[in-house]
Design a binder for these strands. Sequence first.
DNA 1: AGGGAAGTTTGTTCAAGCGCAAAGTCCGGA
DNA 2: TCCGGACTTTGCGCTTGAACAAACTTCCCT
Lengths: 237, 237
Amino acid sequence: MNTTAPHRLDPSLLANLPPFSQLERRQIREILDAASVRRLEEGSVVFEEGAPAERFYMLLDGVLRVVRITEGGEQVIALHIPTGQLFGIARALGRDTYPATSVMASEGIILSWPTSLWEHFIASYPGFATETYKTLGARVGEMNARIVELATQHVEQRVANALLRLMNQTGKRTGNAIEITFPITRQDLSEMTGTTLHTVSRLMSAWEKAGLVESRRKHVSVLDPHGLVELAQGQHP
Amino acid sequence: MNTTAPHRLDPSLLANLPPFSQLERRQIREILDAASVRRLEEGSVVFEEGAPAERFYMLLDGVLRVVRITEGGEQVIALHIPTGQLFGIARALGRDTYPATSVMASEGIILSWPTSLWEHFIASYPGFATETYKTLGARVGEMNARIVELATQHVEQRVANALLRLMNQTGKRTGNAIEITFPITRQDLSEMTGTTLHTVSRLMSAWEKAGLVESRRKHVSVLDPHGLVELAQGQHP
DNA sequence: AGGGAAGTTTGTTCAAGCGCAAAGTCCGGA
DNA sequence: TCCGGACTTTGCGCTTGAACAAACTTCCCT
C-alpha cells in the first residue's frame, strides 16, 4: 500500500513550502529520502480517528478533509487542509493517537514519515518547529472562528462563510470567477456548516439566481466575493 | 497595575503543576523570581483580543474565561481555563498578538512573565515544552468537540454538555451534589452554547424540577451527572 | 445506448427555539 | 431598611430551518 519513492524526488517540491523553506538543499535531500510517497484517490482515508499516530504527513498535492463522526453517526467536516501543509502531526501536540479522521477531498499526493522522526526534524532543522507551530496557530484560529460562527450566525451566513473560506484556501481565478479547485457537494457544505443538504441546495439556487455563484455538479465558483461577504455579515437578511 | 511579588513566593505553588512538575527546586525558584503576581477580581480583563502578546500567564487560583466578540457585538465564550494552567501563550503558536480576550470568571491569582522569556523557558526547562504542547493539544481537542456539538446537537444537549464540561473541569463534591466552583449566570451558559439566556433559563427550570440540578443565583450544582449525560446524548427528546 | 447510482432541486409540513415583553426575585449599597 | 440594579422566570407569537417526500439531472459503467 505504501508506494515508496519511485526513485528520487525533486527537492524543489519542498523547497518552497514554509516548514522547509529555510533549509539547505542537503537537508531537504535527507528529508525526502526518508519519506514515503503515495498518490491517493478522492475519498481515500489517510488515517482514522483514534488510530495510533505512527506517521506524520505532508500534503504535496490535492486537498484534504478532516472529519469527525458523532456517536449518532453524523459526519462533521472540521477543517480543510490545502496543498502544502503538514497534517497528522499529533506528535506536535503531545498526542499518540490521531484526533480526527483524514480523507482526501480530491485526488492528491502525500509524503509521510514515521513519527519517530518527529523529534529529529524539530531538533535538526531550524525553522521547522517555528513554522509548524505557526501553521497550528492558524488552524486554532480558524477553529475559533468556526465556533463563533456556529454559535452566533444563521445558516445563510455560515454557508457563505464556508464558501469564502474554501475560496481563500484553494480558489483559483477562472475568467472572472474564482473556482473552488476540488470536488465539493451540497452534502459536504452542509457538513461544514451544521445544516442539511436541502437547505444548502436552496441557498445555492438562490445565490445562483442572484448571480453570486455558479455551480455544476460537485463544483462551485464564486462570481461575486464581495456579495458573499455581505451575506456572511448578515447585510441582506 | 502590576502588583509584583510581595516578597518571595512559595515554590510549592508551582511544583505540582504539569509544566513545572519535572523541574528542580532551584529552577522553580528562578521562574518564580522572574514572575509578577496579581490578584484579580471577578470580571477583570487580563488581556484583550488583538493586543500585542507582551506577557504569558499562569492561572494560580480561580477560573478564567476566554471570550471572543463578534462584529455584531455578541459575546461568545470560547473556553474556560481551570486553575493551574498556562494561558496567553500566543508565543507557543507563533503569534505576536492575543487571539482572544481573557476575563476572570471568578476572583483569582495570576502569575505572568514577559514574552521574551518564552524561548528561554522552552530551551532551559526540560519537560516544559512537552507539557505545554500537551495542554494545547487538549485545548484543541476541546475546541473540536465544541464544533461537532454546535454543528449537530440541539440546544438542550449543548447546554447539558456545557454543564458537564464545567463540572469536570472545576466541579467539587458538596454533599451528594457536584458544585461548579465559580459564579456562572444563565447568560454565561447561553454564550457558551450559542443560545439565549431565556432558553437556558427554561431548561434549567425543567432540570431543577426533574431533580437533575440545583441552582441559586449565579450558582449551579449538578445532582445527577448521569442524567445529564443522557440528556447530552439526546436520550430523552 | 441504456441503466443505475450519486448528486441536486423543489414542495410541504411542522416544531424548536428566538425575539420581544413584562414581571418577579435576589443582592449589595446608601 | 429601603432602593436600584443585576439576575431570573415565564408567556406568547412568529420565523427559521429541519424532516419527510418525491422527482429530476448528470455522470459513469457496462
